[in-house]
Simulated scan of single mutants.
Amino acid sequence: MPTKVVFLLLPKLHLLDLAGPAQAFSTANDLGHGYDLYYVAEADEVVTAQGIPVKAQRDWPELSPADLIVVPGWRSPRFTPQVPIAALTKQRLRSHHAAGGQVASVCSGADALGAAGLLDGRSYTTHHDLTDTLSTRYPKGRLVRDVLYVVDDRVITSAGIASGIDLALHLIAVDRGAEAAARVAREMVVYARRNGDEPQESAMLRHRGHVSDLAHRVQDVIDSRYADQLRLAELARGVGVSERTLTRVFTAATGLTPLRYQQILRLERAEHLIGHGATIEAAARAVGFEDARMLRRLRSRGVDLGPPLLGA
């Protein structure tokens, strides 16, 4: 029997929180993997945060333990002190889980699971902007920060927005196999299927919160050629400044030297490859190291993949 995937639509839901995983399961169904999609709400029509109305059904399909409920996120709970979910809907979530079914959320959808009591005693995650809010609301749960998704006792929570696609691909891989998930990812032109413990923000995004045009242009080059042997003189010529000026401006803007920024990009990509089964030697070659010694050294040092280190 096809697996039923029921999307619970709440007012002001985010389109991509819904469309990303819906597309993944729909594509899996098109490829013959047996998923039936349903969209339920407490009203016949739900207006999204982006202003587009979405039609829904009020009647829930009959669910079995093999089926899945997904709660997409809605406009930040910081602006909605009360979770927009009725007592009967909370009970449906609890009952499905108690019967052995899976319940998942994207972004602030975790707030609905928390309101239903499903986060108590379990690990969960959410969008990085909402972690403080939800950890305060649901202190009986164990909030895991800066990961893409968390699975705990058939309660699956994801970070938000595009991570809903990673969540769906993970569930497809578990239910239908890694090959099925890879085919879906290829059809959706997803660059890479990410593991749940990967950071919510890549290094390419974390170190872009500055206003230096020069540093951004240098980062553009390093981002596209991080596996190459880039010389400081070459980077400086490319942006029309001296090596000294480039280093000074880049470090002031990002908190990193150009070399350290390149190393962080390489290390982050290598960790991704190792997490998907590559050997350290193969990962080192793929990201541009001459051998695995430097990669091992960086990993053993615990090189920070988080916020920039000033003066690095």
Rank of each mutant, 00 (worst) to 15 (best):
P2T: 14
L9V: 06
K12A: 11
K12V: 05
H14C: 06
D17M: 01
L18W: 06
F25G: 03
S26T: 00
L31H: 04
H33E: 08
Y35Q: 03
Y35H: 10
L37E: 08
Y39W: 12
V40Y: 11
A41T: 04
Q50W: 11
I52G: 09
K55E: 12
Q57M: 12
D59H: 15
D59C: 06
P61G: 07
L63Q: 02
P65S: 02
P72T: 02
R75P: 08
V83N: 00
V83H: 10
P84Q: 05
T89Y: 13
K90F: 13
A98G: 01
A99V: 03
Q102G: 07
V103Y: 05
C107P: 00
G109R: 03
L113M: 12
A115F: 10
D120W: 07
D120L: 02
H127M: 13
H128I: 12
L130I: 01
T136E: 15
R137Q: 03
K140F: 11
K140D: 02
R142L: 14
V144L: 01
R145M: 00
D146E: 12
L148T: 03
Y149C: 15
Y149A: 03
I156Y: 14
D166G: 10
L167H: 05
A168R: 11
A168S: 09
V174T: 11
D175S: 12
E179N: 13
R186S: 13
M188K: 15
M188H: 15
R193T: 09
R194C: 01
G196L: 02
D197H: 14
D197E: 13
E201D: 14
R208Q: 11
H210L: 15
V211K: 14
V211A: 14
S212F: 05
D213Y: 04
L214C: 06
L214D: 12
H216D: 02
H216A: 15
Q219M: 06
D223K: 01
S224Q: 09
R225W: 02
Y226I: 02
A227S: 00
D228K: 03
L235D: 01
R237F: 00
V239Y: 05
T245E: 07
L246D: 02
L246N: 03
L256K: 04
Q263Y: 15
L273G: 03
I274R: 04
A278F: 11
I280Q: 04
A284Y: 03
A286K: 06
F289C: 04
E290G: 11
A292K: 01
R296Y: 10
L298T: 00
R301H: 09
V303A: 15
L309V: 11
